[in-house]
């Protein structure tokens, strides 16, 4: 009876894992299918990937995504790290207020953030393009950077910083020689998360992108609206593979030397 129940639970859980991964695996599989039109498997091919790399629009979208991703995640990481370092010194009341404001973008429907920024950019008459995309991406990824780095700082406690000051290091020397080296894995994890979020974002980019700043997800959306094609499969596969790699590497960095192994999402 007990084992039956346990087997049922384990079977159900594996089924859920299959539910989560099967569609993704099928998508990846079909990006290697020779046939263009239907779902019948006609043979293995790399040709859809080759054609992607020969497609100037795809390459342009990839370049846009990379540029926007790198610039926005650098800014988000710098601002988020600085904010996390400061908030640590606030009284409980002020840090609650500050965190409340910072984490609000995580709980607001994404569509609202997108259109709110569209309204802002049109009011200040900023032309939609790479700059507006970067501004938007920093705004939604900074809170995640802050969450990760605050976690790391809380994990570190205040004793080490006190020890450093006790040994004659000024607050800036303490930051430079003790705090920053110790939270570096968190900073790297935060950067990778911000980059992943930027690379992956569709909803907010959809509102604030201009005609010459199409990112990969926006390009994929354009193709998806026109129907299923092996090129979309291949492009989606590339996006999936890079996301998975980035997330796994970020997780490794986040857990590095950290007492806190609780996973965030």
């Amino acid at each position: 009876m007990k084992t039956l129940r346990r087997n049922a639970l384990s079977g159900y859980s594996w089924l859920m894992l299959v539910f989560l991964y099967l569609p993704i695996l099928i998508l990846v599989l079909y990006s290697f299918n020779d046939s263009r039109i239907n779902a019948t498997w006609t043979g293995f091919t790399w040709k859809w990937y080759v054609s992607l790399f020969e497609n100037r629009q795809v390459m342009q979208a990839l370049m846009n995504s990379m540029t926007i991703g790198v610039i926005s995640s650098v800014i988000a990481t710098v601002l988020g790290t600085a904010a996390a370092l400061a908030v640590k010194h606030y009284s409980i009341r002020w840090s609650n207020i500050f965190n409340g404001l910072m984490y609000l973008p995580i709980v607001i429907p994404e569509i609202m953030m997108g259109l709110a920024m569209l309204v802002l950019f049109s009011q200040v008459q900023m032309e939609l393009g790479k700059v507006t995309l970067i501004l938007a991406h920093v705004t939604f990824s900074m809170p995640y950077v802050m969450v990760i780095i605050s976690g790391r700082l809380a994990d570190m406690g205040k004793e080490l910083e006190e020890a450093s000051q006790d040994l004659g290091a000024t607050p800036w020397e303490t930051l430079r020689y003790v705090t920053l080296p110790l939270i570096m894995p968190g900073i790297i994890a935060g950067f990778l998360m911000a980059f992943t979020l930027s690379l992956d974002d569709f909803i907010i980019s959809f509102f604030v992108a201009g005609p010459n700043s199409t990112t990969l997800p926006l390009y994929i959306y354009g193709l998806v609206k026109r129907g299923v094609s092996p090129e979309v499969n291949a492009l989606s596969t590339l996006l999936i593979v890079s996301t998975v790699l980035l997330v796994v590497v970020a997780e490794i960095f986040r857990r590095k030397d950290s007492k806190n192994n609780q996973s965030i999402f």
Partner: peptide, 20 residues
């Protein structure tokens, strides 16, 4: 006088050695 200018040193309860 901030802690880093006081001519004293402290041995912490959990030692607070720099792990890096």
């Amino acid at each position: 006088v901030p802690p880093y200018q006081r001519d004293m040193n402290m041995v912490f309860q959990q030692y607070a050695l720099f792990p890096h």
